[in-house]
Design a protein around this nucleic acid. Structure first.
Lengths: 195, 195
DNA sequence: GTCTATATGGTGATAGAC
DNA sequence: GTCTATCACCATATAGAC
């Protein structure tokens, strides 16, 4: 299975995705040309097609990789402790993960309409899986009587929107550390859903 | 000042902006061509340039109109009652206004990076003015002792992100009326910022 | 695996007839 | 005010040499 000596496919492939990630996040999928991506990688445009069948696949692969990684990381935290502990864990995880991957998050939210219908459906299903993680925690908390009875689905969407919003203003060089931001948001989330 | 009889500039001009609004919201600024806009209006592409100097101005005018209208509507509500009453008013206004203008809101959030630097600065300043409306209410509530002392700026961003999030899932034909959504979100906002 | 060259068609914007 | 025609350029994707 070893590749021919001198083959660069092991390194050029990832570099194509990395360049697409940066450029799509900065300028938007529709505004970025394959020639720009090629220039960033350091090859001619035609060479990109050794690594992707087309431009759409670059976008889809980036979004799918992001969502699957998000779900995999979240799965490592699942299922321990009370609803309150789990909600704090989810809140802090969500903020930390999203602050660490601002490019991926930006694309995942902004470029949905540039996916083909089939690709869109697949990404949406993964997003729904992630939302359900939070919804399950809120439901458990309501059953435990520690969270206020509410429209759990809407509560879920509201909390995720609030948390994801950090990516629009947070700057690593700003006055707050990620840990302080986590604490502030956890304070608001806890109060918002409690009895 | 009356225009020549038969002139259509009074109606074609707004129709150009309307078509751009719908198409930009649906497909994104970069993905929409002047020919598509012209087709939607029912003229040839060249005729559009009687109403706009270029494509960028279409985007900027849409965003500026949206932000100025938002600020003007908000100004009608300002300044009456306690901080708690004002916060409820702001919350319900924000949700109602944003649900009524999903296309404008979508563009205002998604197309910032397609503005020229000068245009971006102008829109950002208007957005900041709007955020300051909420921040002033939160500050007043903290002074009154009815809201918990907190990082008011972050609280502001968190609340706006949560409220604006309704536009991503709300459907007029869904199970909830706009009024019910307002009440649910107001419940969460009130608890999140209270002592 | 990467290159150059190319096929095919779309882009924003303008000029000048009517 | 709108049209047709056009300019100069850029798009994605492919073919075939090396």
């Amino acid at each position: 299975m070893a590749r021919t000596a001198g083959s660069h496919s092991d390194i050029t492939g990832p570099r194509v995705l990395d360049a697409a990630l940066r450029l799509f996040a900065r300028h938007g999928y529709a505004a970025v040309s394959m020639r720009q991506i090629a220039k960033e990688v350091g090859v001619q445009a035609g060479a990109l097609y050794n690594y992707t069948p087309d431009k759409q696949s670059l976008l889809f692969d980036l979004m799918k990789r992001h969502m699957e990684d998000l779900l995999a990381e979240r799965a490592k935290h699942r299922g321990a402790g009370s609803a309150l502990e789990q909600l704090e864990d989810f809140t802090r995880f969500h903020i930390r993960y999203h602050l660490d991957r601002s490019d991926e998050v930006f694309i995942a939210y902004m470029e949905l309409r540039n996916l083909t219908p089939e690709n869109f459906a697949e990404i949406e299903a993964l997003r729904r899986d992630y939302e359900n993680e939070l919804e399950a925690i809120l439901r458990q908390g309501e059953e435990e009587g520690v969270f206020a009875p509410a429209d759990t689905r809407i509560e879920t969407m509201a909390v995720i929107a609030m948390l994801t919003g950090v990516t629009t203003w947070y700057r690593a060089e700003g006055r707050l550390s990620a840990g302080e931001v986590e604490r502030i948001y956890w304070d608001m989330v806890r109060k918002a859903v409690s009895v």
